[in-house]
Each structure stands twice: as C-alpha cells, then as structure tokens.
Design a protein around this nucleic acid. Structure first.
Length: 748
DNA sequence: GTGTCACTTTCC
DNA sequence: GAAAGTGACACC
C-alpha cells in the first residue's frame, strides 16, 4: 500500500510513500498525519489518499516513518476545504493544510512524548484512588482530575475531556488505542448535568423588533444561507449572534459554531459575553483560537474543536481553517475588516473562506457589520445574500452621535488659535468633557511621535538605510524606527548632512498628540493605546480596563481604539489627520476611511450620553464627510459602488497581483514584463486585462526591490484559469529573488 | 588543496 | 523555499 501525502512545501504536488509495516498499511486513512523522510529531513505530512498503486518507480519511493494514530483524522470536508483554498489561492495543498494544524502535531518527535504511557499512568492513579462512591461526588472528583489533566499537556488534556460524558465516541477511540483506564470509562456514565451544576441563568435583554426578525431569519435558514447583518454601532449585533447560536445549539446538542472576530484584542470581551450566556455549557465547550495563545493552549483548543468537544469556537482569521466536524453556523463579525485578509504566506480572506465553508456544509453564515464591505453589499444587492438590518441603537435613549466638521482652512484664515495641530473647537470640547467627568477619545491613524525628522537648513530627512522610506521618530524610546523593517537608531543631535543642530520632527503621531494633550488640557489623564504601547502580551487588555474603570479622561490611539470596545462614558470622539486617505491612489482607501470613521464615531455616546464627533479636515465639503455626518452608510455605499462600476473596479471585476522581489528594481520589472508576455500563450488570458508592471510605493524593503503586475477580469473563472496556466510558465522564468501571486488583493 | 560565490537541481 | 550539488575562480 502507498499513501499520497501533502507536505508544507511550495511544490504543488502530493508525495507518494510506501507503507512499510502492516500496522501502517491497515491504519492509514485520508486525513491522518504521518511522519515521512523528505530530502535529508523528516517532516510531518497529511495523508490525502491511500492507494494500491504509485506512478513512481519503486526505487524512488521512501517509506513512511510513523503514523499518528492518536489524533483522529480530519474529515473529508476539511480536506476539501483545504483543497479549495489551495486551488483558489494558487498554492500547494500542503501549504494550506499543514500550517492550519497546531504546531504540537507537526512535530513527530512530540507525538510519542505526548502519548507516553508513563505520563498517562502518572496522572490516572489519582483519579482511581480518589473516586468516591456516590455519583455526583464522583462527578466533582472527575472534574477536578479532568482539570488537572487539562492543565498538563495536549493529548492528556484530550483524554481528560474524554471524561466528559458527551465524549463517549472519543473515549472509544482512546480505549481501543488501549490506554483509557477502566475508571475513566465508568466516568462516561456520569450524567451530563454534572458538568456545571450551579450555572446561573443569564438575564436576557429584550430584543428590538429588528433583532427579533434577524434571529428568526437565521433560525429559519434551511441549508446554505448567507446573511448580511447590517447594524449600526450599538444596535446589538452581538445579541443577535448569541440568540442565533443558542437556538442552533439547543436544536442540535452536538452542533458546533464558529465565530470570527477581526482582532485578538476583541476575543476577551466576546469570550466573556459567550461564557456568560452559555454558562450552562461546561467550561471546555467554548474555546478561543488565535495567534496570541501559547502553543500548548492553542493545540488543546484546536483539539477540542477537532474532536467535537468544543461547541463554540471563537477566533481570529486563522480559526476559519479549524477542524470542526459538526459545524452548524458561522458568524463573521465586522466582516468588512481588512484584518480578515492574511497578508503573508497564503493570502486568504477568512471571510470568503467562511462563506465557502458554509456553502460546502449547507449551513447559515452571518456577516455582521455597521459598514459592510462593498463586495458583500453588492452581493446583497444582487439577492445572493439576505440583508438583515438593525437601524436603531438597542439601548433605550441611545442615539447616534452628532458629527461636526472643523474646517482647518477656515480656522487658519480667521486666525483662530490652535495647539500643535489640535484646533480650538476640539480643545474646548475636550475641556468641557473633562469638567463634566466624561471621557473623550482622540483617533489618529499614525503611531510614533512624528512620521519624519527633518533638517530646516538643508532639507535632509531621516531615512531607513535598508528601505526606501522615512523613519519614524519614537520619543519615549528616543529612537528613529523604520516601520517597514524594524531598523532602529538613536536620534542624531545634528543633521548628518550639514551639521545644523536645529533638526525638527515633522507631522504628528499618537505619541506627539499624547504629549500635546497633556499640555493643552491641563489636569486630564491621557492614555495612549497603539501597537507600541501594547507590545507586551496582555497589556492591551490592561490598558482598556483602565479606560473602562474611568481612570482615563482622554484616550489617544490608532484604529485599535476604534474597534468593538463599548466605552460607557465616552461622549466625545476627535478625529485628526483623516484627509490623507481621501486622495490615496488606492481605490479602497476611502471605503476603509469611511468604515473606520463610522466605527470610531460609534464609540461616542453609547450609554445614553449625547455623543459628539469632531473631525478636523481641510475638505469639509467632501462627499465622504457629508455621508459620515448623516450616518449614511447606504448612500455612501451606493455612490461608491456606482463609481466602481463606471471605473471597472471590484466588485465588478476580479483581480490578481503578481509581485516580484529582485536585487534591483530593473530585475523585478523585467521579470514582470516577461511574465506578462507569457500570458500570450494562455487562451483564457484573452478575457483578462493586463496592466503595466509598476514599482511598489515603498519600492525597497530590507535592500530588496519590489514591483507588481495587476491583472483583472470580469470573469472569475477566466482569471482562475489564467492563473492556473500561468503558474508553471512563471516557474520557468529566472532573474528574480522571489515572486508570488495574490488573488483578490486588498491593497493595490 | 579549500573557501566562497552564483547558480541549478532536487525534493515522493 | 531550503538544502545540497555544481563549476569557476581566487588565494596561499
């Protein structure tokens, strides 16, 4: 017998191996993990096929080292999902499937350690001797033991969760593997209610009519049903998710739900909400999956999902590839968020894969947003997604904030005082909130102290020696830092070109605004939240809880502060420096800006305080700000979609990018021109438009020069066919350090 | 001889 | 994409 194995390797093929022993030949099933020799190394791969024949000559075939019998195989649905993603995003199956598995399983040397009988044995006697006679008492003892096991290592934890009566099938697997002790099997007869005997009954808020209608629609879904839940901030989308999940889990006790959020920072509050609502489920039935988890924890959570013991999986984009054998509903919160697009390696869109997954399994998928992506909005216009609308804030008396545009030109013309870029009206409003004991939020999408450090005398600007970019001044660290490659240097005392000592920071970042606010609004407690102030694990959570606890008067930050957080006492939002996105060459910049401003505006006045948003701008009559001040997403979306249609831009065309990295820009461009010429050999490319190869905006990063070539088509099928035929031709081209294809790119 | 650089080939 | 293999050349 032979197995065909997917390996995490850029070659787009499967690799054949001999099953050297009868155990392996009989035990091998598609979806199982194997350890195999590959070149001089040994790697873990995923069995995709078990076959009696191999195309390869016998002498080239190597034998499987080891079969991972302890981990149940992933389902054929999961394999099909990975195959779809690989095909659509133009990668090898193994490049998709293996990185989606927990690291602990991808290291074969750890299998034996994790499964070692001594390890099991050392832990189980406790349970054996401690088990009391009466059933509930026994349940408690078992739960303690289970927790002890859960706190230990990965597969021991799986064993421990098999103590749970719902997991009899899993238990059978372990038992047949010969290592589940008798008393553990006994435990399987402990009643399920023992899991959480004294869970409080959650108090449910009354739903608005719109929320009720949304929940009804989702509950009534039959088979694949995509919903676009368009709800203004504060309209109670989360409550709709909670009710819909409760309905589905109640109807089918073994069902699993997948809930995606765009950012790690949002998982704690969601997890808390889900745990409070589903307190009757045992603690292990809700798990999180994101890159912030420790390796062992992530492996345990993944395994809980894989074996069906976790019923609610809450995670970031990577969770869309979790193994979920009983998946019954998917929720994608803030579906418009660009964070759902992976920006390195396999550049997948978690939202798009969520839709594929729902379609594949015939289950509902709910895309929630106050500002849906134009792609999703267009799908709803076409009737392919069912639109559900929450137009009012759910909390009584909470109204949408008033938006005021501060015309910076007029302020200047009239000679009104400003304070380091903060206009008079904004400072006055901040002071008024401080006096009233209310909180304010100042949003600025640029971290660091100043984006440039320049010399007045000769015009020198501090740049990165490795990249074609200016370095950003970071005052607390007294450093210049490149935001593209991480290069750092001390701040020079004088201009390295002309020796002038009057070198000055230009422009404003969050650090500088923080400093300015401390002077401009005396007595205010100012806190900054951005990628720099939250670098340490868990520090974001600590900072946010300071805000919730009322220990902060003014919160300054990047988009990080705009998302999700329900700050009860914020009544003012100030927006600085938004104009740059209005005239960007990226056609999606205005869509992103509008979503961000709507989102950050939504932070104001959630708990009944009258909310106000002040936007400092040089273009107060711009259509985007006009729509913003009327909270008119629909108007903005329809107008922008009309523009996109006229300009033949997504969602009316499908795009792909070929990126090349070379030692010189000329090499990268030459590669792309050759690549474009190859398209002439591809019949499907007749329906594809090819643009000129162009350098990236930041052309050089880490001494590597980058360029890209955009191709697009009104037909997704023609684009896909072209890419499939193109890739082998590209492999034949030389002269470049690296290249990659990105399907449905977000940034162009 | 051998170090190292640029480039090609192999990976079941 | 990484590692091993290849040939050319400089160096003592």
């Amino acid at each position: 017998m032979f197995v065909r194995v997917a390996l995490d390797h850029p070659l787009p093929t499967l690799f054949d191996y001999r099953c050297a022993t009868p155990d392996i030949a009989e035990g091998a099933v598609p979806g199982m993990l194997v350890s195999v020799p590959f070149g001089k190394r040994h790697v873990v791969g995923l069995i995709c096929e078990v076959t009696a024949h191999s195309e390869l000559p016998a002498e080239r075939l190597k034998a499987v080292d080891n079969l991972c019998t302890a981990c149940p195989p992933v389902s054929s649905h999961w394999l099909a999902l990975a195959a779809f993603a690989a095909d659509y995003y133009q990668r090898g199956l193994g490049e998709v499937a293996l990185p989606a598995l927990p690291q602990a399983l991808r290291d074969a040397s750890r299998w034996s350690r994790l499964f070692a009988p001594e390890e099991r044995y050392r832990l189980t006697p406790e349970g054996r001797t401690a088990l009391p006679d009466t059933l509930p008492a026994r349940a408690t003892a078992l739960r303690k033991l289970a927790q002890a096991l859960v706190d230990s290592d990965f597969l021991l934890a799986a064993d421990a969760r098999a103590l749970h009566p719902k997991a009899v099938a899993t238990l059978d697997t372990w038992q047949s593997a010969g290592w589940v002790a008798l008393d553990v099997i006994e435990a399987a007869s402990v009643p399920a209610a023992a899991a959480s005997p004294d869970a409080p009954t959650p108090v449910l808020p009354t739903l608005t009519d719109e929320q009720t209608a949304a929940v009804e629609a989702i509950r009534g879904a039959d088979g694949f049903a995509p919903f676009l839940l368009h709800g203004v901030t504060g309209s109670g989308k989360t409550e709709v998710y909670l009710r819909a999940l409760a309905e589905i889990l109640a109807a089918k006790p073994d069902a699993q739900a997948l809930v995606l959020v765009p950012e790690i920072n949002l998982t704690p509050q969601f997890e808390a909400a889900f745990r409070a609502r589903f307190a009757a489920l045992d603690g292990t039935a809700i798990v999180t999956l994101h890159s912030g988890l420790a390796e062992g924890e992530r492996a345990r959570h993944w395994f809980a999902a894989h074996t069906g013991r976790a019923h609610i999986v809450l995670g970031t984009r990577l969770a869309v590839l979790a193994s979920l054998p009983q998946l019954a509903i998917i929720v994608v919160d803030e579906e418009h968020d660009p964070a759902y697009k992976q920006q390195e390696g396999l550049r997948y869109s978690a939202r798009d894969l969520a839709i594929y997954r729902a379609k594949q399994l015939g289950v509902p998928v709910v895309l929630g947003s106050a500002t849906p992506s134009l792609e999703s909005w267009w799908q709803a216009d076409q009737g392919r997604y069912k639109r559900l609308t929450l137009s009012r804030r759910a909390v009584a008396d909470a109204v949408l904030p008033s938006v005021r545009l501060i015309d910076l030109e007029e302020e200047r013309r009239r000679g009104r005082a400003s304070f380091e870029g903060l206009s008079g009206p904004l400072i006055a409003s901040l002071k008024a909130r401080l006096e009233r004991g209310e909180q304010s939020l100042v949003f600025l999408n640029r971290r660091g102290y100043a984006p440039q450090l320049a010399c007045d005398a000769c015009g020198w600007v501090a740049g990165c020696p490795r990249c074609s970019a200016y370095v950003v001044l970071h005052k607390p660290e007294r450093a210049l830092r490149c935001h593209h490659c991480g290069w750092e240097a001390r701040i020079p005392r004088s201009c390295p070109e002309c020796g002038n000592v009057d070198i000055a920071p230009m422009g404003r970042g969050t650090q500088r605004v923080e400093e300015t606010l401390a002077n401009a609004v005396p007595g205010a407690r100012v806190l900054r939240i951005d990628a720099d102030s939250t670098r340490r694990k868990g520090s974001a959570q600590a900072l946010f809880s300071d805000v919730h606890a009322g220990e902060v008067d003014i919160l300054v930050g990047t988009q990080m502060i705009a998302k999700g957080h329900d700050f009860q006492r914020v009544s003012l939002v100030g927006v600085l420096n938004a104009d740059t996105a209005l005239f960007s060459h990226d056609f999606r910049a205005s869509e992103r800006l509008f979503a961000q401003l709507m989102q950050v505006s939504g932070r104001a006045g959630r708990a009944g305080l009258p909310g106000e948003v002040l936007v400092q701008t040089r273009y107060p009559r711009h259509a985007l700000y006009h729509a913003l001040s009327r909270h008119d997403y629909v108007g903005f979306a329809n107008a922008t979609l009309a523009e996109r249609r006229d300009a033949h831009l997504p969602p009316f065309v499908y795009q792909a990018l070929l990126r090349a990295e070379g030692r010189t820009l000329e090499a990268a461009l030459a590669f792309l021109q050759q690549a474009a010429a190859e398209l002439a050999h591809i019949p499907a490319a007749a329906r594809v438009t090819v643009y000129d190869a162009v350098p990236l905006t930041i052309v050089k990063v880490m001494h590597v020069h980058r360029a890209q070539l955009l191709i697009e088509s009104a037909s997704r099928a023609a684009l896909q066919a072209t890419l499939h035929a193109w890739q082998p031709l590209l492999r034949g081209l030389k002269g470049v350090l690296r290249w990659n294809l990105e399907v449905d790119p977000l940034d162009i």
